[in-house]
Every structure is written in C-alpha cells, then in structure tokens.
Design a protein around this nucleic acid. Sequence first.
DNA 1: ATAAATGATTGTACCATACAACTAAGTAAT
DNA 2: ATTACTTAGTTGTATGGTACAATCATTTAT
Lengths: 143, 143
Amino acid sequence: MDDESLELIEQEISVFVRRVTLTEKRFGNLERSAYILLRELYHHGPIGVKKLAEQLHLDMSTVSRQAAALVQSQYIEKIPNPNDGRSYFYQITTSGIKEMEEYRQQRYRYLAYILEDWSAEEQAYFGKLLQKYNAIVHEKTDW
Amino acid sequence: MDDESLELIEQEISVFVRRVTLTEKRFGNLERSAYILLRELYHHGPIGVKKLAEQLHLDMSTVSRQAAALVQSQYIEKIPNPNDGRSYFYQITTSGIKEMEEYRQQRYRYLAYILEDWSAEEQAYFGKLLQKYNAIVHEKTDW
DNA sequence: ATAAATGATTGTACCATACAACTAAGTAAT
DNA sequence: ATTACTTAGTTGTATGGTACAATCATTTAT
C-alpha cells in the first residue's frame, strides 16, 4: 500500500474521530450512545439485551445500563418475553422515535453546514468510502 | 445538499467513529489519548499545558492529568519555565518517541490490512476527503 | 432431578472529559 | 511598593462510556 496515503489516512482519521466525538456528544436530550441504541432498536425492532449488544458490538452490561436509562426516560419499553422468563424485548416508543429524529436532524444540520461547499461528487464519494471502510471492517474483523 | 448523500454520511460516520474508537483503544502501552498528546508534543516541540490544551481542544485539567500520567511513565519530561515560575514545558522523551512510533506502527498495520484491496485512487481520495473535512471543521467552527 | 447453559443485572474498576475551586506566581494600578 | 487583577497549572468532583467478573433467575440437557 502507498505509504503516503496510509500516513495521511492515519493522521486524519485520528483528528476526525476526535472532532466528531467531541462535537456531537449531545444533541437535544440524547447522548450519542443513546442515539445509536435507539437507531438500532428502531431499525431492528423488538430485541433483547444480548442481541442488541451483539449488534452494537458492546458488552451486555453496557447495553443493559444504557437501556435501563432509556426505559427510565420512557424512550424505550421493556416487555417480558412470554416464552422465556429470563428475557425481555426492548422496543422504541413514540417519544423515543421523536428524540431520535431530533438528534438526527441536528446532526444533519451540522453536517449540511460543514459540507455545504462540497461538490455532489465529493459528498457522494465520501459517503461511499466511509461505507466501504465500515463494510470491510465488518468482513475482515469480528465486527 | 443532496439528501441521500447526507443520510449516508450521517449513518456511516457514526458507525465509523464507533469502530475506530472501540478498535484502537490501546496499542502497546499507550491509550489513544496519550498517543495524540505525544504526537502533538513531538510535532510542536516543548509547550505548556495551556497551549497543549488549546491545540488538542481539550480542557486544561484533562491535559494536565494526561500529561502527569505520561511524566510518570517517563514518556515526557516536565521542565520549569525559567522566565515564569508558574509555567512548564513538556517535552517528549526518547522513550516517549519510541512508544508513539510503536502505536503508530500498529495503527499502520491495521489500516494497511483493512485497506489492502482498495485501489490507490480510493486510498488517496479517502485521505484527501478526511483531510478536507477536518480542514473545514477547523475553518468553520472554533476548532 | 440435578447439572449445565443462558439472559440479564449489578458490583467494581478504568479512562476521558469538563467545570469549579484553589494555589502560586506574575502584572497592573494606585 | 502594596494591593488588586490575571494567568498557568493542579486538584476535587461529577458524568459518561465501557468491560470483566460475580450473581440471579430461568431454561435446557443429562
């Protein structure tokens, strides 16, 4: 692999990640972790902590606590699994969807602002390359 | 701005950031935060906590603690400023450089593995777009 | 029926970060 | 020069994100 590109990517990724994490900490009432959890629930539908943790590549204990907080805030509901007394299904509520979309809108606005002067090609390519990167990590590692 | 690209980018950035942060937590003896601090010291040369915090866009207290830990590990040295009894210069040590490079090598290896099947164009473009994104955030926000 | 496995929670620990209070040293104003 | 203001740095406290280990309750397998 081309060393120059490698160095550039290495350098820029670390700056990029720093910026995104520090900038997008909280939008509205949600932390970023909560947003990601809600998004997963929204797309996947009712699901237990174990599977949720697998999807998010987090430890069950982490997800269990985050989910508990979201139940508290009434953004998700915890429904006992009728076929298995140990397990539950978490389900996003109307209010949860609203908050999730609120957060997303804020991200959209911010991104649109940052990328406003990019050409359509650059924007499209940026999205595709990020997607490709993520897909490869998914394939190649245990993600 | 094109909505489709925006949605894609929004989605993929959050996955991307998650993955990078969870994957690259620690390489060798360094945390990622330590690596970034060392890199800054390495490139910038001797500098106090205040400026360091500005460069890294972190609170002084955060940097102060991270720096103290690195002094402890002997990866950096704390030198009193002869012209100002309040302030110090932090300076990376030989051993600090070694660790920093160790960390970087591990990141390189990992990245090279992930990107091995990308064309040279894709690699180059990916680096450039990340760089461009970072530069714009820098211009447009108080970063 | 007892042992093993499983879903979930809780205890504990660590890192990253910020804000506020504080200390010590420098600078400015009277 | 003495007093008040400012500044560099550290430390106290709080929050969030995460993991590992222990535990609890229930289900499955022997």
